[in-house]
Write a protein that binds this DNA or RNA. Structure first.
Lengths: 235, 235
DNA sequence: GTCTATAACCGGATAGAC
DNA sequence: GTCTATCCGGTTATAGAC
């Protein structure tokens, strides 16, 4: 654990912190307005009233501004989810609510996300939501799904219980991937996908209770475990 | 259907065709040797003995050279697969053989593919293996899996039969995605993944025969059908 | 040490002459 | 079909100011 901010160690004085914040704000605004490709570092710097080189003092690359997006994105999401996580007991409704909210709150960044996913899809990059460097935000995000399960009336048992929050997070990433490319009016296709797939997912979770299913479930979990060590050099 | 080559309509004279071919050859060699990012258009042009501008006359962007890679990649694969497709009857062994061969033949391009997937993961791009523009090569690739099934002793029935070749192709893309990020010695992790996952996949295919499974299978297929129309503007 | 600015460099892409 | 000249934007080197 190194601790936070990829952003060059910078921003440790009153003025520095403010400058950094100003850059982030301008960047996010430009991202919403013009998308990722349509936003230039020169443009951000100009808006923020700093020189180009100075912007690079705070963020060592354009990509690194993405971390700022992840943070804002998560905060907006969890805030909007509280009512559902607090008030609803039915598993399917909880899951449905969290996923729909994720899409809704991300809407202003639709164009941006389209172009983002190109960089984010590459687990090489520290900017990938799957990378070590994003552990912090990712864990917060996985936690939402832990709450989805724990706060519901459906009890999950066996090996599945441990893995489920992370699996649901991955499932959410799949939804996002779809949304990113969804050009339908108001992203109605994505909402349809959410409805149909949560139905399936909840069924599968409940199927886990049937003893004859256990070997298949366990074998699948074992496979997923194998999928993990992408970054290690193990033989 | 527009027909082939994304490459600007160019290359229709004797000399033109040769120049184009020379560019492709130099590009692929450089891709193998230095990866995608490590290869510059200027470098390719120089090796091919043409000017930078001229290279752009034949390929309207660096990305468009990727089409050339897809083509070579597919040809090498199918050639290497013939023995298995002709000689083996067991479904699992056929599938295993085809997937292993895919990885083996792609090995010289491992570094290249790492960087490639960044661009290819974006279905926006005409370079994505999922895009309309790549229908031609993709169909050829899906066809390999049709042969895997048809030539095997296992009979597949129901709605699954129609979709299975395409599903297996998608599954192969998943394997490739894993391989691309696999840093283990000789990509042993990927081969392990292939072994374990084909086992699971073949089991699932055979499970399809059990009547009680049908509703779940059909519901899943319906969901997958919903997943398709990513590019349309449907309500 | 923390911050800021100016002037390059590099490589993908385009314009336009021949 | 081919070239040269140029643009554009991410990134870096470097030098100074607080």
């Amino acid at each position: 654990m190194k601790s936070m901010s990829q952003t060059t160690g910078a921003g440790r004085t009153r003025k520095g912190g403010e400058t950094k914040e100003r850059i982030v704000d301008c960047a996010l605004r430009k991202f919403r307005q013009y998308g990722y490709d349509g936003t230039t570092m020169r443009g951000i710097a100009e808006d923020a009233g700093v020189s180009l080189g100075n912007a690079y003092y705070y963020f060592k690359s354009k990509d690194h501004l993405i971390t700022a997006y992840y943070r804002e994105s998560h905060e907006t999401h969890i805030e909007a989810c509280e009512p559902i996580l607090d008030g609803e007991k039915n598993l399917k409704k909880r899951l449905l609510g969290v996923l729909r909210t994720r899409v809704e709150t991300s809407m202003p960044y639709h164009r941006f996300s389209m172009q983002l996913f190109k960089t984010a899809a590459d687990p090489e990059s520290p900017l990938s939501p799957f990378s070590d460097e994003q552990t912090e935000v990712r864990d917060l995000s996985v936690d939402i799904f832990r709450r989805v399960i724990d706060g519901s009336s459906t009890k999950v048992s066996g090996k599945l219980a441990t893995e489920l929050p992370m699996l649901l997070w991955t499932y959410q990433m799949g939804i996002i991937l779809y949304w990113v490319h969804d050009r339908s009016q108001g992203c109605s296709q994505t909402y349809k996908l959410i409805d149909h797939s949560t139905d399936l997912v909840v069924r599968l979770i409940q199927l886990n209770r049937l003893p004859p299913m256990r070997p298949l479930v366990n074998r699948t979990l074992k496979l997923l475990a194998d999928l993990k060590p992408l970054r290690t050099n193990g033989a």
